[in-house]
Design a protein around this nucleic acid. Sequence first.
DNA 1: TTGAAAGCGCTAACAG
DNA 2: CTGTTAGCGCTTTCAA
Lengths: 337, 337
Amino acid sequence: MPPSIKQVALQAGVSTATVSRLLNKPESVSSDTAGKINEAIAALGFRPNFNGRNLRAGRSRTVGVVVPTLSNTVFAQCLQGIELAARALDYSVMFTATEYRQEDEAAAVNLLLSHRVDGVILTVADASASGTLDVLDREGIPYVLTYNQPQQASRLSVSVDNRAAAHDAVAHLIALGHTRIRMLAGQFNASDRAIQRYHGYLDAMRAAGLAPMAVIEVERHTLTAAADYQQMMADPRQRPTALFCSNDLLALAAMRDLRALGLRVPEDISVMGFDGIPLGEMMSPVLASAVQPSEQIGEVALRTLVAAIGQAEGSAGPVSQTLAHTIRHGGTVRVFS
Amino acid sequence: MPPSIKQVALQAGVSTATVSRLLNKPESVSSDTAGKINEAIAALGFRPNFNGRNLRAGRSRTVGVVVPTLSNTVFAQCLQGIELAARALDYSVMFTATEYRQEDEAAAVNLLLSHRVDGVILTVADASASGTLDVLDREGIPYVLTYNQPQQASRLSVSVDNRAAAHDAVAHLIALGHTRIRMLAGQFNASDRAIQRYHGYLDAMRAAGLAPMAVIEVERHTLTAAADYQQMMADPRQRPTALFCSNDLLALAAMRDLRALGLRVPEDISVMGFDGIPLGEMMSPVLASAVQPSEQIGEVALRTLVAAIGQAEGSAGPVSQTLAHTIRHGGTVRVFS
DNA sequence: TTGAAAGCGCTAACAG
DNA sequence: CTGTTAGCGCTTTCAA
């Protein structure tokens, strides 16, 4: 067992209360007792036990983070942003992944709540129908959604405008002369974002007077729909000129599969993604994408959460924060002049 | 404040000790008292407070993780593996990044120790000269290094054999007919792995009777050495046929810069990386690389750590675990027949 | 400026 | 099978 405040007090010849004061309000301790205590602390290698402190204080200066997976760079970057901002504000981060399983969302949050985190940052499958969020609401634990754009105006969230960003991406394809644009999406029931992006796709197609095509939903664990691609490309008149994918990983997987079928990107078919993962910009050709600022999303989410923790029940500041997206042009999209 | 074991006891008409027993050894409680207690728990929405439990028990079932950054997929995957394995063993994960700053390593570990984590998994700049590890040793906190291969035989670690893997990568280039192979590395003082991989490069060159070329050390934050590339390629007789990069991110950045200079990969110059990030396999051409099993490294590290926690001071099992690497062949490397 | 004392939530003896 | 009690490390009144 590491030394406690008690041993420090003993060693320094003061009471535990005084040691505690030095730790928390140094100016309230005379400089010579401070000296003695600091000596004792150094000699013993004392380090305050946050468990004791938290128990007493009823707060932990720790936030919980729940993301679907770290295999998708987007969430890794977001977590990176969270951790960075947390450290700057002297908060610690407890981290969990759900692998897109909704039951794991609940379990993760329960665990975090048992640790008595002061708040939670999470990305859920469906923000509008999430028992997990209801639990958080009921318990009055502050939380901030990332990537999700909840219907309920009461829920704090940080994201891009998924629908608008998808619209802009598809509009970009249309502006470049594409008319037969098909969307490839992750499973709708695992991602409300995918649905919103699909609406953005529909918006853009309709606004241009183009006929939307049937969406292809890709299984999460395989990340492939090779059979669909084959069928899709078989009939020249059915063949889309461009594929708009609901995320970059999907876009990359699709490109790989299409190439395996002997097709060239963008000569035979164009591909556009969503997320704007950094690696997309290092590839050749560059992956066109609707870029969201993931690290910043994490950073803003953390700051919003800490603000919410500070105010307890009181509300202040914007509830649903929409960060700007950009459209990354890239060689994966062919230009019809 | 959420309900405590006390309110549950009151509501159920039993003592707090009995509630605690139900929580920890359910079979030691009669089934009808169990019923009453469970009712009370459900009614109150009780959730045990781990701070109280940890304080009492002197352990937290929480491990700390310190990685350089999540911007490199390798560490994100590793963390993913850690979290997954931790969850399976009912451990929680507290996470920190250092951005490759050594002073942040120490700060991160101090914070984790204040939280009284039961052990730490970390990747440090230099495992052989790390004050941070000395602290851990002194305090007797179990820890496991990932990616680092420490000199000290006493330190638990999980990694590939960096030197051998680099050797194999370079030997692969040589087997394909390359003779003028140059190495590109991250800064040696920020990564002992980079040094080990450099030795592997030297091993392979010497074994083949080839003259090693001067290494190019790339700045971490820019990830580029465009000026060096220009100079390097200027003189046809100085020009390497292949670049071996100490990690995949570097390889990708180099390819981007080389292309910007009007050079083609692999026609004008071949590129091979290290890490085997998943995206390398989705690109076209596929990025050749020495592949390390990052997620597995995390998983094994966590299990090793938990075993070490279990045994306290006693030792058992292998100390330095070397996982198998593989060589991924890829189109970024030209074949001289 | 300092100390004594109480209590945050929980568990582990020890009795019964 | 269950209750009583003490104490983990810390902070915070309240007095001095």
